[in-house]
Design a protein around this nucleic acid. Sequence first.
DNA 1: CACCAGGCAAGTA
DNA 2: TACTTGCATGGT
Length: 228
Amino acid sequence: MVSIHSRTNSLNISVQPNKILTIYQRLLDHFGRQNWWPGDTPFEIIVGAILTQNTNWTNVRKAIDALKHEDLLSYEKLRDLPIEFLAEKIRPCGYFNLKAARLHNLFQLIETQYDGEISYLLDTPVEQLREDLLSVKGIGPETADSILLYAAEKPTFVVDTYTYRILSRHGILAEDEADYHEIQTIITDSLPEDILLYNEYHALIVRTGKENCKKTNPRCESCPLKGY
DNA sequence: CACCAGGCAAGTA
DNA sequence: TACTTGCATGGT
């Protein structure tokens, strides 16, 4: 059990249970720690963040393993690989032409903005880095936040389709609160700002999706969120 | 066979 | 602003 006490939303006057924190505790108790991201280096995490867009991780791992097997998984080697070759290498992860182009768009940012040094990117303050990442064609809010949290270790909460689904089913989101940043704010306003907490929470949410048993539905009998 | 997977951008009205 | 569509492989 985590030792974080529930607290009220800053805009609420009455004391009420922190549903966001309760959901986290239930998922953690049920699944245990996930210890994300599944990758060895910040660069591998960055590449994985783009390759996993709307794609099952098992397919992404095939692509990453293929790159590793040919010793291509370094910034300099991928940057210098012709884009058609890169696309062919990452074929198993799907959308391979698109993702090869998106990786190259990011490499161009790293060249122009960070002097070709991943370490400079990682050391950039969170606001600036998020803006830079979002300026890259092919990097949207979730991919940017995944890089910020899991590669650069900034306190950024990652919102994905599961996050929306869970909050929606649990009546936490209003009808007109589907916007990425609104959802992110609802969550971060309910939690202490803690990188490891953000890391584990998003990982648990994805794990819930992988279980494929409607565990995000409060009426599911085998659900760790039953009754919520 | 259909459906989904740790999105995003571009087009349409 | 609010929908719709293309992108693509591999597992269930």
